[in-house]
Design a protein around this nucleic acid. Structure first.
Lengths: 338, 338
DNA sequence: TTTAATGTATTTATCGATAAAATGATAGCA
DNA sequence: TGCTATCATTTTATCGATAAATACATTAAA
């Protein structure tokens, strides 16, 4: 391993000078030595020791990405909660800033706090955390935290997410305009993102004077086997009862379309299906899924941007950012009237 | 931040003793002091400084996971090459051993080498690397490397993968037994994993005396837009020309099924479709995809296991490990005769 | 009793890089 | 000439943890 000391000796200068060159402290080094050292630096292809940098400089160049993991032992049974597009974009954005991503799955904020301390991370990004857990994390960490897709009563933690309410509104509006009179909004909970999407649905229904009984929030259990049971029992029932089923996530929508195909329920003739997120699966299922499109890369990108605003001490950083979403009309919603 | 020194002072011992307690060097510390220090350690909830450990101890407790990234700027256009099940399992297995995962996307082995040096990683796992790049990486790194899903002429780098050839054989055999006489194997290249799968197909065809013209390797371009063009031009043709299309990956198979649905090509009545991997999508498409199932978690698990065998200096480590795969019969292959 | 072996704990030097303080040289100005 | 200001560079101390060397009892063996 080549150390700063080796470079310094070769150049006939002190280690500090080399260090200054590496960090581009132009004001402290003359142009001549600058060039000379830079040349030697590349010649001997020097790589810094992060351990030493962390210790001496106090900066780790590490961003911790914490992904919520309800149960470390059962992760294989349920599909991973994180999107790999997001992970990839996060790493990319972090690395572009000359930092590194330490990805860690946790099932409590405390684990995250310890993790941050051990590695002396300079910032944290959370995925799939609930509001309370984000708040707890932030309160016990000195470093900035940016959550993705979280909702807070008071905006205690910085966040980047989508205009979920707007998306819910957009889809509900479209469904109404297509002539659907009985709309079911399907999700596995009523908090955070899903709650907002539902709120959006509600406000569209109000706007367009859909009667109270014309729209309902159907909550199905989230675990795979429970969901299957639910489908077996209720899928026929609800697809007869509603004109359109708006699923809070494409993942469920695609699954439901498949289940309906098995039961001979025609989509969209018998019941229309809509989703949210515009997953890879949305374009691959038949009928193609009408859904709300989100820019997952942009979300990751902004999250990292915001985090570094905090790290660099930029003033007046907006605590929350909601990226716009768009309606993508495909084939899973029947147009009854135009 | 609480340092070892603080603990030592509180306990009235030297830092070294505390360090020994932390590392469970039982032979060097008496039971009494052991207990006393352990108590203080938890009371003051001490967390070690990784920077210092890396520097002083020379062990970073970091495993680098390198995911191949052909083009850093275009990653959003193509679906990520890595499976999030694998990522999750890797992290889990690594963390279980009290190590941490640093995930990094690279588009050359050199980047990986530099990355390993900077962080002083204790081992590397590669995803999506070609054989040559793995070899180059290994040759320039002092730490052990375990590749996932790679194939070598001579086994230069440790590897964990699947019995791809066996899987190819299994599926081809099944197709033949179902009475299919014209089989097309579809992939976007003929190296590594796909080559092996194709070899498996060939040997099954030989075994069952399928004539030369009864089986063919069709290579379609891998990039999304090129693939679409290919489908537009040739999908009708090849689905008329073959009884069964065996795609080297579920991802393509699912896509093809969707495209066929658009063109009114009946699966499996007009043409049978088979895949490989047993992705999430395989169960979600209709007809359900008949495919070769792999244990992605097990693969990740074994890769980490093997890497730590190297790290711990275990003797006689097998250079390569191929996990068995199984045939999953669903609905996308027509049974012509039994 | 002497010597060796063992167990327990401490000292000291070190890992590689950096920030802060100190040095020295040069230039500017009265 | 003498004083300050500026620039370029070096010295020194330090970050937190650890390995190697050392010290000092105590016990066991000769």
């Amino acid at each position: 391993m080549i150390r700063i000391k080796d470079i310094a000796e070769k150049a006939g200068v002190s280690p500090t000078t080399v260090s200054n060159v590496i960090h581009g402290n132009r004001k402290k080094v003359s142009k001549n030595t600058m060039k000379k050292i830079e040349k030697i630096l590349t010649e001997m292809d020097y790589v810094p020791s992060m351990g030493a940098m962390m210790l001496a400089g106090g900066s780790s160049r590490i961003i911790g990405v914490l992904a919520w993991e309800p149960d470390r032992k059962k992760y294989h049974s349920e599909g991973p909660a994180f999107s790999n597009i997001v992970i990839r974009s996060l790493e990319s954005e972090i690395y572009n800033r000359n930092y590194y991503m330490l990805l860690h799955f946790v099932s409590s904020p405390e684990e995250g706090i310890q993790f941050a301390a051990i590695w002396n991370v300079e910032g944290l990004i959370t995925l799939g955390f609930g509001a309370k857990d984000n708040v707890k994390l932030q309160s016990k960490c000195k470093v900035p935290v940016v959550s993705i897709d979280a909702y807070y009563k008071e905006q205690q933690v910085a966040n980047v997410g989508l205009d979920d309410r707007g998306g819910g509104y957009l889809m509900a509006e479209y469904l109404i305009q297509c002539g659907h009179e009985k709309i079911g909004f399907v999700s596995d909970n009523d908090v955070g993102v899903d709650h907002e999407r539902w709120k959006g649905v509600c406000s569209a229904c109000k706007e367009y004077n859909v009667p109270e009984e014309g729209v309902k929030h159907i909550i199905i259990p989230g675990e795979t086997h429970m969901r299957r049971k639910f489908y077996e029992k209720y899928l026929d029932v609800i697809s007869r009862k509603y004109d359109a089923l708006f699923f809070a996530s494409d993942y469920y929508a695609v699954e439901a379309i498949a289940e309906m195909a098995d039961r001979g329920i025609q989509v969209p003739e018998e019941v229309s299906v809509a989703g949210f997120d515009d997953n890879k699966g949305a374009e691959l299922c038949r009928p193609r899924l009408t859904t709300i499109h989100q820019e997952a890369e942009a979300k990751a990108c902004r999250a990292v941007g915001k985090l570094f605003d905090f790290i660099r001490g930029v003033r007046k950083i907006s605590m929350t950012e909601r990226l716009p979403v768009t309606l993508v009309i495909r084939d899973s919603v029947l147009v009854r009237e135009s």
